[in-house]
Design a protein around this nucleic acid. Structure first.
Lengths: 163, 163
DNA sequence: AAAATTCAGTTTATACTTAAACAAATTTTA
DNA sequence: TAAAATTTGTTTAAGTATAAACTGAATTTT
């Protein structure tokens, strides 16, 4: 859920110096639009979802031996969340879970051959969609955006302790 | 769930000309960080959530007569989603639903006195948090970010038909 | 070695979200 | 006016997400 459409009304009601809030709403709007497009594509084309794609990506991009906890850290969600998504992926034969011999608490998750095959297709689509959506902006404009965002993230992380 | 931490690995694996993907990951990272902070504040401080705050904002910012369908459009979610969030807000006495006399299909939703009081507090916190998080960037930097994002959104919307 | 603690992952309860099927009310059309 | 189509909102089924309680396994302390 996003307040994207309330944008103008909310901004009208705040002091003009609140340029920060204006930036946050622009970020919210932009993110939500793109995320929605990716989500709907994965749903329609693969009967899948972004969380499933994210887990497959994490497995495809890392050396074998990725654990449930590793997935939770990489994808910035709780371990309980990972349990559910991985269970459904395993039921569909896209990943496999093996208990470590050295430490029987640890579950090692690997992507299966069919999981890899599906991920390859999803990944190509994902990149193509992002590319298409941003094609209208020049490379310089896109790079400006990237730098602004990376700078903002640094600022945000530094400000967190002040909250 | 976000691929934020996979950022660098994914980028290493793509052609260097994929500046668009780099921008999308920066957007994802930045958005997720800020959203998580807002979410956790509402949960800890008010035992509430962003969707609840969003609905209260929509009601507080608009003239009376907002319908369930209006909320779904304004917050860009399905009507079924609105049904659930509004029901829980009503159970907590924060909003009230009245069936229209003119058209008995229509539910008119209004914010209650206690809902308004809670929203005032949440809203002040929300603005303060965004302001604090972005305080480290200059006004010029923030404005550059806003312009880049607004331009990108336009680009995205124009590209949608091509998908 | 026994007890206490820490650690990895699952389970539980609750909330949020979608798409699709549905019910009821209104409007359009023939 | 009667039938058909549209509109508004709810319900349902499944997936995604959190926090907190829990289980079993390993490690640390005593």
């Amino acid at each position: 859920m996003s307040q994207a459409i309330l944008f103008d009304k909310v901004l009208d009601s705040i002091p003009t110096e609140a340029h920060q809030l204006r930036a946050w709403f622009a970020l919210l709007r932009c993110f939500s639009s793109i995320e929605r497009i990716l989500m709907q594509h994965l749903a329609q084309e693969y009967n899948s979802s972004l969380p499933r794609y994210d887990v497959l990506t994490a497995l495809a991009m890392n050396k074998p031996g990725v654990t449930m906890g590793d997935l939770a850290v990489m994808l910035m969600v709780t371990k309980g969340n990972i349990t559910g998504v991985v269970r459904r992926l395993e039921q569909d034969g896209l990943v496999k879970k093996v208990t470590s011999k050295k430490d029987r608490r640890i579950q090692s998750v690997t992507i299966s051959a069919s999981g890899r095959k599906l991920w390859d297709k999803m990944h190509r689509d994902y990149e193509r969609i992002i590319s298409t959506l941003l094609k209208g902006a020049s490379e310089a404009q896109v790079n400006t955006l990237t730098l602004s965002l990376e700078h903002t993230l640094k600022t945000v992380e530094e400000a967190v302790p002040q909250l």
